[in-house]
Amino acid sequence: MAKIRGAIVVDAERCKGCSVCVANCPQQVIALGKTVNSKGYYYAEMAFADKCTGCVNCAIICPDGAISVYRVKVEN
């Protein structure tokens, strides 16, 4: 059976750590990290990468255009 796998790349310098993506991720993939960017914001990152389906919800809700999304169909 085919499985959808996704991944996101967060532009750490653009991210302001608002957490809107965290709240809107249906798979609870995203969390704020423990390091800050040059502006002092804790930025979002994939905390549970294997759960990401590449649904793009996080990217389209991101007010800073900081997220790119990748998706691939994996045959088991």
Binding site: G6, A7, V9, G54, A59, I60, S68, V69, Y70, R71
Partner: peptide
Amino acid sequence: IINEKNLVYQ
């Protein structure tokens, strides 16, 4: 996964 050919949103 993070590969140009798999890009769905930027």
